[in-house]
């Protein structure tokens, strides 16, 4: 039996963009894409791809589908999971889908999963590096009425159950969940593997399957925001650093400690 896994993935601005290049257009409340820095697949979502690939490594017959909602996809970026070893790329692509609130995103993902499913496991990353919502996958579990386990660091399929380790502050829990379930994958799963040349070649030949929102039975009216963005801006740094100087660098170190004591910080 093939275990069908869908991994939720998001295209985000490269979080390694230097702060000096990060700019916002305050008239539209949008980030101005830095020139010459292409977007990437959210790094946390690659952890979820890695989790699915680890199941395959362990001998489970898996089919891995990447699902993403947005517009103006950069295919070179979105194909990275396929180059790592994922089988399919499904895009719900339509202007405006990059501006949904999380409730709208969950509605689209749920409809797409209904259309393209059924799936045995739905995997998401821990959070997105742009809007850091960290709750789309959790909300999806509620909307699909499926069991949820967050922050999974290890998983193994046994029959119609999935055995999991869930990260907790001082260790982990051993958890058994049914199939189907929704899981968020923690970065403790391990570094996402680098695509090899063969993977990159194979990914380049595969075409994504593209849906419009009408294809999945929705209209923009179904996606009205519950939470409205009023303003997006880069905060002025009003923090003025107090630079401690001394006769030499060693003296500066000594004075720094004394200054921190003066401020009752140590």
């Amino acid at each position: 039996m093939t275990v069908r896994i869908v991994v939720l993935a998001k295209q985000v601005p490269d979080p390694e963009t230097p702060p000096s290049q990060f700019k916002v257009d305050e008239s539209t409340n949008r980030v101005i894409p830095p020139s010459g820095v292409p977007p990437v697949v959210n790094g946390f979502d690659l952890n979820a791809v890695e989790a699915a690939l680890k199941l395959r490594d362990a001998g489970t017959d898996v089919e891995i589908t990447l699902l993403s909602v947005g517009t103006e996809f950069v295919l070179d970026a979105m194909k990275k999971p396929q180059a790592m070893g994922a089988d399919r790329l499904v895009l719900v692509d339509e202007p405006g889908l990059d501006r949904l609130d999380s409730a709208g995103t969950v509605t689209v993902l749920a409809a797409a999963i209904e259309k393209d499913g059924p799936f045995d496991l739905i995997l998401g990353g821990r959070q997105a590096s742009d809007w850091d919502q960290a709750h789309v996958t959790l909300g999806l579990a509620e909307v699909l009425r499926l069991p949820l386990v967050s922050l999974v660091q290890k998983l193994e399929i046994s029959g119609d159950l999935v055995q999991l380790q869930r990260v907790i502050p001082d260790g982990y829990q051993v958890v058994t969940a049914p199939i189907p379930s929704v899981l968020t994958i923690s970065n403790e799963i391990g570094e996402p593997r680098y695509p090899n040349l063969r993977g990159i070649m194979q990914a380049s030949r595969k075409q994504p399957e593209v849906f419009s929102i009408a294809d999945i039975g929705l209209s923009m009216d179904d996606l009205a925001p519950k939470i409205e963005l009023k303003r997006l801006y880069v905060p002025e740094s009003n923090r003025q650093v107090e630079l401690i100087e001394g006769d030499d660098e060693a003296d500066a170190g000594r004075r720094l400690a004394l200054r921190l004591r003066e401020e009752k910080l140590i």
């Binding site: 601005p13 979080p15 702060p19 990060f22 916002v24 409340n29 980030v31 590096s129 742009d130 809007w131 850091d132 519950k226 939470i227 409205e228 963005l229 009023k230 303003r231 997006l232 801006y233 880069v234 905060p235």
Partner: peptide, 15 residues
């Protein structure tokens, strides 16, 4: 804070 703290976003919640 959004974008790893590079920007702040203000929202209104009416519901």
């Amino acid at each position: 804070p959004v974008y790893g703290g590079s920007a702040l976003a203000e929202f209104e919640i009416a519901s």
